[in-house]
Each structure stands twice: as C-alpha cells, then as structure tokens.
Design a protein around this nucleic acid. Structure first.
Lengths: 231, 231
DNA sequence: CTATCGATGTCGTCG
DNA sequence: CGACGACGTCGATAG
C-alpha cells in the first residue's frame, strides 16, 4: 500500500461527473490498484476514489496545467467501464509504501456468536463427558471458536458456522494443523458445527477426520430459556 | 491526519459484533477522531471503522493480551452510542502525522437532473412529432419529470431515472393513475426513460402499457455539444 | 428534529 | 455473471 500526502485537485467522470478543488489530502493506493482520496474528516467514505479493477498511469501535465502548478497527473482508469479519475498533484508532502500482505478479513459474530455462546453452555451436545476449555481460544492465525476436552481429556477444536461450507472446513483444518504442532495439546480432533452443512463441506470434513455436528438453534435457545427460568 | 501502519487485530461491538484477526493494516486517524482500518485491497470501505463523533484512548494491554504480543490497545468509543472499536497493536511499522486543513469538498454535476435537461432539449428522441410541455410538471403527489405531447397531441408523462428499477415504474404508475383522472389531460400514456432498465422493471412497465426508453447519456451529451457548437 | 430517498452506494447470497 | 436484498449503510433534503 502506498500512502501519499499531497496538495491536489481531482476530476471524476463515469456514472457522474465531479471535481475536487485544490487542497491537501491523503491518497491511498492499494495493491490491487484502487485509489482513495481522503480528507481529514467525515465518514469512512473517501471524497473520491476508483474501485478495482483499475490501472494507474502517471503522465506529465499539459503545459497549461503546468503553469497552474500541476507537477504530475495520475490517471486512474477502470478496466471494465469508462470510469476515470484524474488527480492533479501540485505538491507531494509525503510518499511512503508498505507491504501489507493478504488480509484474513472481517469476521462477523451475529448468529454465529450466539451459536458459540449456546454451544459453550450446552457443551454436552458434543457428547457425554465433554467439558469446555474456553471460547475464542487464541492462536497465531486467529481464535478457535470453542476449545473443549472429550470424556478422555483429549483436546477438541470446534468451528462454528451458521451455514457450513467448504471454506469453514478449510479454516478448521488450518487451526487443527497448527494446534497439532503443539505437543501440550496434540492430538487435537475437530468438530465442524453448523445450523446447516452443505454436502460438499460434509464430504470434505469427514474425509479429513473432522466430525460434523448439526446445531438446532431453536432447540438450543429453548434449552437456554428453560435453564434460566428454572435456576 | 495520522496514518499508522501496524500489525494489529481488532474487535467491534455496536450494531453488530465482529473481529479482525491479526494482520498488517493501515490505520487512519482523522482530525475529527474517526478511525479507519484499511487492508491492501477491496473497495473504499474500510475493514472496520469508527465514525465521528468519537474519542480514542490508548490503554495498556491486559497481561494475558500482552503475552500474546499486544503492545498497546486503542479503544475508540463513539460519543452518542455504545459503539466501540478496540484495536490491539502488536507492532507499529510506521506512524506519521500531517496537517491537512479543511477540505472544500466534492463538487458534483448532477446526472438525473442532467438527463432530464438533455431529454427536454432532445424531445424528438421520444419519437417523431413529440413536443415538450414542461419539465417538473406539478401534480398533487409530486412533479412529473417531463410532460410532453405526441404527434397526435396526446399527453405523455415521462419518468427519468439513471437506473430504471421497479420502484421507478411504481412511481410513474401513480402519476399516470392520477393524471388520467383529469378529463382535460386523459388519456395520458407513460414513458419510462433510463440509462439502464432492469428486466423486472421492463416487464412490469410493459405489462402496464408503459413504454421503456433507453437513454444514451454520452450520445445525448455529444448531441448537445454539437448543437451548441453549431449555433 | 424525524422521515424519506438517492448513491460513482458496497457487499453478500443465490440462481 | 446478473438479479436481489441487507447494510454498523451514509448523506442530503423536505416537512
């Protein structure tokens, strides 16, 4: 990612036409070529931007623009439409670049969080003698939803999804691979728990020795209500 | 504006709960206190953020977090709600600050308004012998974008959208129903004009006897340029 | 102030 | 790939 602080002006043409008068702004150029022009306030929405896929090209300014103080022009062109963003750079105050790598992305804990909470309380749903170690068990590549021990005291890593698909199985597989390198924990077995498990995900999981567990959300909520009412 | 490049993890609680696993990201702290967490790809939307008004507070990590490598925690709290963003900073790779000043903001050239203007000038695009009655023709439930007459002198109500979807057809239908109650105007036919018309909108419109007209914005702009250059 | 609507909406899911 | 609905929607405008 490249971050440039510069006095600049900009023009956008595409679904509409718009322009930005000269001011000092932060320009973010992402690895996929997308460009964001941010001011020092407002919401998360940039003043102007170009979404990927797009390409950026540095061109010399027209003589007339050069006279107005434009040192360099960035032409950002979308690859699938005729959307185009042109940035007139008048003065670059800072220009830095950093290698960020791929991002694992945001994990939303909606129903999934509630399922996790319920299963942590009703850990016996996993089988007789199961006990909870902790929720959000930390690892270097992210937290495991639930860590438990079975009746024999062996570790069990549980990945919870609302809808169980292949990527969830892959995620659990990565956790298991990592956890099984730890001699204090190994052997760690896996449980893929979801309200709904797609056939392909089930096949992949079982092929890897991961147990699949269908969760009855309504039933679990009912059990919770019952226990809170009784005790 | 402060720009920090750091290996970090984050948690958000508010309208939903979500977390970001550890990764290297760009953190933007704006003058109004708002915070944006960007990855090196995707669109202009940050992975996570806090909108103003909000306050940021640096706190020391819990001992347990410290063991996991958390050097510093940023707690960003919204001032009017209980939205909260916590960022675990593991390693700060860069931390810079720049004075940007107030931004004059984006200046837009309207699109729907421009389409209306262009079609009013180029009313012959509707068909031979069409004439303009007026733009923004007033009715009790709001103005009709363009009122025209066809070659036979019959009234035609035109609804203009950039993207024609079902709600636009519904809107025009309401106008037509009202206008056709007026014996001085009736019968009034309808034209749904847009740069792009969704299939469902087209089906609905044609089922109701409303004609669909695709508008070529670029072409219309070109025609305008030509006429202004010629005369 | 709230209600409504448009957006360079963006983002997921499903067919 | 395209349609459809949800969004931590955001933001402007009318009432």
């Amino acid at each position: 990612m490249r971050v440039v602080i510069a006095r600049c002006a900009a023009r956008y043409t595409g679904r509409l036409s718009a322009h930005l008068p000269l001011a000092t702004r932060a320009i973010m150029v992402k690895a996929d070529g997308s460009v964001l022009l941010h001011s020092d306030g407002g919401s998360y929405k940039p003043l102007n931007w170009m979404s990927p896929p797009c390409t950026m090209r540095e061109v010399a300014p027209e003589p007339e623009a050069s006279e107005r103080g434009v040192a360099l022009v960035w032409v950002v062109q979308h690859q699938k439409s005729d959307d185009r963003l042109e940035i007139d750079l008048h003065e670059v105050l800072s220009d830095t670049e950093h290698e960020l790598g791929v991002d694992p992305g945001l994990v939303k804990d909606g129903v999934e969080a509630h399922l996790q909470e319920l299963l942590a309380e009703q850990v016996s749903l996993l089988g007789d003698g199961y006990t909870l170690v902790r929720r959000e068990f930390p690892t270097a590549i992210g937290p495991v939803d639930i860590m438990a021990k079975d009746a024999n005291g062996a570790s069990v890593a549980i990945e919870i999804k609302r809808r169980g698909e292949i990527d969830g199985v892959e995620q659990l597989t990565r956790y298991l691979e990592l956890l099984n390198r730890d001699p204090l924990l190994a052997p760690v077995s896996g449980v893929f728990a979801a309200q709904e498990i797609k056939p392909q995900a089930r096949v992949l999981a079982e092929d890897r020795g991961i147990r699949c567990l269908l969760l009855d959300y309504e039933g679990m909520r009912g059990a919770e209500d019952l226990s809170t009412r009784l005790f």
